[in-house]
Simulated scan of single mutants.
Amino acid sequence: MSPTPPPSTGAPVPAADANESIRRFVCARGGRAWTAQDMADYAVLLEIWTLAVRAEVIEAA
Rank of each mutant, 00 (worst) to 15 (best):
M1A: 08
M1T: 14
M1R: 10
M1E: 03
M1H: 07
P3L: 04
P3R: 07
T4R: 11
T4C: 04
P5W: 11
P6N: 06
P6Y: 07
P7F: 08
P7I: 08
P7M: 12
P7G: 13
S8R: 05
S8K: 02
S8Q: 12
G10S: 10
G10R: 07
G10W: 08
P12V: 06
P12D: 08
P12R: 04
P12M: 09
V13Q: 14
P14A: 15
P14C: 05
A15G: 05
A15T: 15
A16P: 15
A16F: 13
D17N: 09
D17R: 15
D17T: 15
A18F: 11
E20A: 15
S21W: 13
I22A: 09
I22G: 11
R23D: 14
F25M: 07
V26A: 11
V26E: 06
V26S: 11
V26D: 05
C27W: 10
A28E: 13
A28W: 03
A28Q: 08
G30D: 07
A33N: 06
W34R: 03
W34M: 10
W34L: 07
T35M: 01
T35I: 02
T35W: 03
A36C: 03
A36R: 05
Q37S: 03
Q37P: 03
D38S: 03
M39D: 02
M39R: 01
M39H: 00
A40M: 01
A40H: 00
A40T: 01
D41I: 03
Y42P: 05
Y42F: 13
A43H: 00
A43N: 00
V44L: 03
V44A: 01
V44R: 00
V44C: 02
L45H: 06
L46K: 08
L46Y: 02
I48P: 00
W49A: 07
W49V: 06
T50Y: 06
T50S: 05
L51Q: 06
L51D: 14
A52L: 04
A52F: 04
V53K: 02
V53S: 02
R54T: 12
R54A: 10
R54N: 14
A55G: 02
A55Y: 06
A55V: 02
E56P: 01
V57C: 10
V57N: 12
V57E: 11
I58W: 07
E59C: 09
E59R: 07
E59D: 09
A60K: 09
A61E: 14
A61T: 14
